[in-house]
Simulated scan of single mutants.
Amino acid sequence: MTSFTLKGVSSDTGARRGELRLPHASLPIQTPVFMPVGTLGTVKAMTQEELSGLGFSLILGNTYHLYLRPGHELVRKAGGLHKFIAWDGAMLTDSGGFQVFSLQDLRKITENGAAFKSHIDGSEHFFSPERSIEVQHALGADIIMAFDECPPYPSTYEQTQSATERTHRWLTRCVAYHKEQASEQLLFGIAQGGTYESLRIESAQFIAAQDTPGIAIGGVSVGEPPEKMLEAVSWSMPYIPKEKPRYLMGVGTPQDILQAVAQGVDMFDCVLPTRLGRTGTFYTMRGRINIKGSRYTEDFGPVDPECSCAVCRRYSAAYLRHLYKCNEILASRLTTYHNLAHYAQLMADIRDAIERDDYASFMQTRLAQYGRKNDMKIEEVA
C-alpha cells in the first residue's frame, strides 16, 4: 500500500497537493513539503522543539557525515536516529553519494562503489550501494535514498551518460539488498541525466520501472543556472508515475521551489535558509537582505514587516545587526529561526494556493515580490 495520497492537481499548472504518511510522523505530512537539513543530526542553530513549533515534521540527515561521526552502529545502539537526536517527527537520509563524489581528490569511483578518505582524519572508507543501504538501515530513517553517482556541472554527454547508467546499475543493487533485509523503510530511487534531455528521459523511465515508493530528481543544484534546473525537471516529470511522491534534491531558493512546484514536485530540501542565516542573510517577502549592512544601524522596525514569526514580532533589525557585529551566537539562532519560519509559511501558502486552484497567479505574484521573472512557460507544465 502506497504511503502517498495525491489529493489534487491545479488546473492552471502541474502543482499537486498530497499527503505522505510515514511511521514516525503522528499526522500525515502535507505536500508540497520543505525539509530542513540536519546534516549531523541537528538543524544548525535550532532545537527540535523549535522545528516542531514551526510546523516541520520531516527533516533530513546526512548518511556520509553520520557514518563518520558518531558512527551508524552507535546510532543503532541508541535506537535509531530519531531517538538519538530526540526527534519525534519523520526523517529522510540521503545516500552519502553526493558528499562522497564532491570529495574529488579524496575518492575513487569504480563499478563496485566509491573509495574515499574522510575529510576529518584522512582515514580510508568504501561505500558500495549495499553499504550505503546498510548504513541507512542502521540510522533508521523513514525514507532512505539509493546510492547514486552525481555528475558535476558542467559535464560532457559521455561523462553524464556514464554516471547515469552507473546510477541505474547501483539502484538495482540497492533495491535487491533492501529487499533481502526486509526493511520497512521507504527506498527512493534517484533519476540523473544532467542537463541532457535524452538522458533525463531515459533515467526517469528506468527509475520509474523499478517501482520504488518514491522517485527523486538528482544532479541539480550543482552549479547550473535556474533555467537548466527547470529544464531537467520538465524533461523528467512526464515519466515519473503520478501516484508516487516526487522529490527534487537540494532545491532550493523560494523562487526555485515556486517554479518546481508548478511542474509537479512534492518534496524539497536545501541548506540555504540555515547556511545563509549564519551569515546574516534574511529571506523576506521582498527578497533576500543582509542585516550587516549599515542601512539597518538605526532600523528599529522588524526585518520583514510582513512576517509574523517570533523574531519579527519581538526584535528590531537594528538589534539583529548589533548581534552580528558583536559575533553573538544569538544572531545565528534568530536569523535561522526566521528563515525557516519564512520557508514554512511559503509552503503553507503554496498548499493553500493549490487548494484554491489559483497557483499560477499566486506563483507570478510571489516571483515578482522576490524579484525574479518566471523562468518557464506555464503552458509547458499544465
Rank of each mutant, 00 (worst) to 15 (best):
D88R: 13
H338Q: 02
R169S: 13
G18L: 07
S155E: 11
Y283P: 02
V271Y: 07
K179R: 15
P23N: 14
Q30N: 12
V220G: 09
K377N: 14
E158F: 07
I120H: 10
T13C: 09
F282D: 01
F362R: 03
Y177F: 15
A344Q: 04
V220F: 09
A78N: 08
M285T: 12
G96P: 07
T212Q: 09
N374I: 06
H24T: 10
V33R: 05
G252F: 01
K242L: 13
L74E: 06
A344F: 01
S132D: 00
R17F: 00
V265G: 04
D148Q: 10
I85R: 11
H342N: 04
D349Q: 14
E298C: 05
I133T: 07
V233P: 04
A176R: 14
E165I: 08
I59C: 03
I291M: 10
G218C: 07
L186K: 14
D269S: 10
Q192V: 12
P254L: 05
M237G: 03
L92M: 05
M91C: 05
Q369C: 11
P154A: 15
R16I: 06
T253I: 05
A78E: 11
V265R: 10
R200A: 10
E243A: 14
E298P: 00
L320Q: 09
V251P: 01
C309D: 08
I201G: 00
K117I: 02
T31R: 09
V100C: 11
D256Y: 03
T167S: 15
E49A: 11
Y283H: 02
F34Y: 10
D105I: 03
I215E: 08
A191R: 02
Y319I: 06
T167G: 13
S234H: 02
A318Q: 08
A78T: 03
W170M: 10
M376E: 01
K228Q: 12
T42F: 08
K292R: 15
G14T: 02
Q159C: 12
G264N: 07
R278T: 05
R351S: 08
R295I: 12
K83R: 15
S162N: 14
L22E: 07
S234V: 01
R286C: 06
Y370K: 02
L74R: 09
D211H: 13
R107I: 07
E49D: 12
C312P: 09
H72E: 13
P70L: 02
M35T: 06
T274Y: 05
R107N: 05
R200F: 00
A114F: 01
H137F: 00
R333N: 09
N62C: 05
K7A: 10
N327D: 12
V251L: 13
V222E: 04
P23C: 14
G122Y: 03
V222G: 04
E184I: 00
D105F: 05
H338I: 00
S57M: 08
D358S: 15
T212C: 15
V311Y: 00
E328F: 08
A353T: 06
P213C: 09
G277W: 00
D349R: 12
E180H: 04
E50W: 01
K117R: 13
G277A: 06
A176Y: 00
Y343N: 01
D105R: 14
F116L: 13
Q159N: 13
G218D: 08
L68R: 06
D12I: 03
T164H: 03
L186E: 03
R131I: 08
M285V: 04
D299P: 00
I120E: 11
